[in-house]
Amino acid sequence: MSHHIIQANNLKYTYPDGRQALNGVTFQIQHGESVGIVGANGAGKSTLLMHLVGILFPDEGEISVGEVPVIKKTLPVIRQSVGMVFQDPDDQLFMTTVYDDVAFGPRNYKLPEGEVEKRVKSSLETVGILHLMDRPPYKLSGGEKRAAAIATVLAMKPDILVMDEPSSALDPKSRRRLITLLKRFTHTKIIASHDLDMVLELCERTIILNNGQIITDGTTLDILANEELMEKCGLEMPLGLQGCPVCGAKKAT
C-alpha cells in the first residue's frame, strides 16, 4: 500500500428506492493528486465518495485503493488509509466533548494516550477550535461543528483525504484557514464541493459529475474556465475566473 492509487472501474449504484445515483463511473487517481469533484445537486458526488470508504458498495464495477479492493473484508485496511469528512457534521460528532470526539479515532487504533493528546490538540489547532475542546459538540455552531468534524479526520493522519463539501458553513477566515491547511496536506485529496473557487485553488484536476456520469475529467483551469461546459452541467464559472463585476475587466488567467 505504499502507492495509494485509487482505481474505480465502471461503478454503478442504484439506491434501494430505485434511484440510479452512479451510472458507470471510471477514473484513476494517482498518489499525491488532488482532485475536485463538482456537479449540481443530486449529481452523485456524495454517493461516489461513500464508495471510496466502503459505506456503499457498487452494484456493478469495482473500486480499489492502493491495489486493495474495497470490499467488506478489507474495510479495516481501507479505512486506516482513507479519512472521510461527511457532508453533515452532525453525523460525525457523537461523543460528549469535542476532545473525546477527535480522540475517538486515534484511540481506536490503540495509540498511547500521550500521542492521542498530541494529535487531538494539533488537529484542533489546525482547524482553529482548540478553545472549544471541552464543549459538547452538539452545542456548537454549524461552522464550528464542521471544523470539529474535519479535526476528527485529521487526527487519524490518513494517507488519502476525502471531503464532502468541507467549506460549506465556514466563515471566510475559517475557509481560508482550511484551504491553507489543505494545501499543506501533500497526500491524495478528493474534494467534492460547490465552492468552485476553492476547487480552483486546491485541485489541479477536476471531475464533473452529472446524473451519475462523468462528463469531463481534466485540468481544473481548463474545465472551470469553459463557460459552455459549466452551463451545461448546471454550474457557473468560479468568481475568480469571471470578469470583475465593477469595472468589467476580464481577469487574466
Binding site: 470508504v53 459505506i55 474495510l75 479495516p76 479505512r79 486506516q80 479519512g83 472521510m84 461527511f86 453533515d88 453525523d91 460525525q92 457523537f94 473525546d100 480522540a103 475517538f104 479515532g105 484511540r107 481506536n108 487504533y109 490503540k110 494516550e113 492521542v116 476528527t152 479526520v153 487519524m156
Partner: peptide, 18 residues
C-alpha cells in the same frame, strides 16, 4: 450514518475512553 462514521474512524466494537 453515525454508525458509518464511527466505523470510518476505526471503530471495531470497543469504545475506548482513553
Amino acid at each position: 450514518r453515525v454508525y458509518h462514521s464511527m466505523c470510518c474512524r476505526g471503530f471495531a466494537g470497543d469504545y475506548n475512553v482513553g
